[in-house]
Design a binder for these strands. Sequence first.
DNA 1: CCAGTTGTTCTCGTATACAACATGAATTCT
DNA 2: AGAATTCATGTTGTATACGAGAACAACTGG
Lengths: 256, 256
Amino acid sequence: MPIAVSDIERASSQTVKAQLALRDLILSGDLKPGDRISELNLVDRLGMSRTPIRMALARLEDEGFLEAIPSGGFTIKAFSERDVYDAIELRGTLEGFAARIAAERSVRGRLIEDMKVALRRIDDIAALPTLSVDHFSDYVGLNARFHALLVEAADSPVLKRQIERTLNLPFASPSGFVRVQAEMPEARKILIIAQDHHHCVVRAIEDREGTRAEALMREHARLAQRNLQLALRDQGTRSLLPGAVLIRGAMRSGVF
Amino acid sequence: MPIAVSDIERASSQTVKAQLALRDLILSGDLKPGDRISELNLVDRLGMSRTPIRMALARLEDEGFLEAIPSGGFTIKAFSERDVYDAIELRGTLEGFAARIAAERSVRGRLIEDMKVALRRIDDIAALPTLSVDHFSDYVGLNARFHALLVEAADSPVLKRQIERTLNLPFASPSGFVRVQAEMPEARKILIIAQDHHHCVVRAIEDREGTRAEALMREHARLAQRNLQLALRDQGTRSLLPGAVLIRGAMRSGVF
DNA sequence: CCAGTTGTTCTCGTATACAACATGAATTCT
DNA sequence: AGAATTCATGTTGTATACGAGAACAACTGG
């Protein structure tokens, strides 16, 4: 989803502004993979000095969008389809780890309750006869919230940091595929399966079944992999996938 | 291990110089956890302008050594004993993931051979009647090489990046505990067990036993956890642990 | 005596100037 | 004609200047 202009303008510091604007420039496909980035060019385009732009470039390199050139400067990184697969499975592995330690260590009741609340609201959406775009938008939010709460439940700052890094790549995020999902005929089916995973994980955590909780989150991530596979094969849905422009390879030679 | 001054001086760019020098300043305990970092102070101490220092600070924040203050600036991060535990288990999880996909996908023979070569050389060291400091130094290098080759075998840039990030925290690195190990009576015993893990993992990868390979690497990381526990309890060995100054809590009030 | 306020000082974020360097094109020599 | 070399241009890395804002202390009013 493109970032609202107001978000960029409202950002307190120029550095953050540059970071958001640049991310948007990359994700929108305005800057293509392999392109070398010209700092002075960005000075014109973003209307700020080089300093905050350089800071933002360094940040985006850490986030994985850019690759440093040995002689200096950056290029936009390109991802293979397998890279994306790996990123999703990596997220599954980390979320599985989070679920496991949440199960093994005692989880405070409040977090579990919050997770259940989110799940109930997703249940309500899933029960609706038809799913509008707004409903899907709510679903995205609730889904993201559930995943965030799971990480919270692990109560490990080190792990949280690492998971957040993985989620920087937009197509690796659990919210990455919902727009694709909304357009697919199997939308409801996938939603039902994913939601079942959610319920089972909460139950496993409550019952201190660490291994089961871990396995479930891994399998859960595999749903995203399947969505990805479907999305990339079809030019229409492909455009709904955030960051799809960064993915090279299969089906690149499409309509255009 | 402290970084040689020559390494810092030889570094090409001022930014890298600042990064290495700062890391050293933090790891040596010169800058203590909780301290707010003064950029101008560093200008005097490192003899360079603010620009490369600011770059280095941003990098070190990403590496996990620093924490950004909302109002601006950074403080040295402090880690709880549990944070370190989690970081090690996280490494185990990621290396386990690497071992699994190395096993599941076909691994090129060359990498496996290189791993075996490293293991044979470790075997040679383990067979020696006495273990000198030099031998342990060799062991550190070979151990690091084996772990690096394992990541290489997974052949996944995304995973590689993430593992490298985990290894930024010195106490989470597989090489972090060898200096402690060298001083402990159980040194050889632990070395033998760790080396058995290594051998078994290679075998599991060759035999495409992904689950076993994964479990082994997880258990392997647990050895480091045990080492950590022993090391932190004893003030003498504690000083041998790189980055120990960043760990607050247990046994902090020791001899001094 | 305490709290609120004001003023100072220091810090950080940003802009800009400069120098070293890499890159690429034009030119010259073989 | 092709290759090497030189030169010009644009780039990045670094230093520094400046302004806005925060932390802190002194001061004043209740």
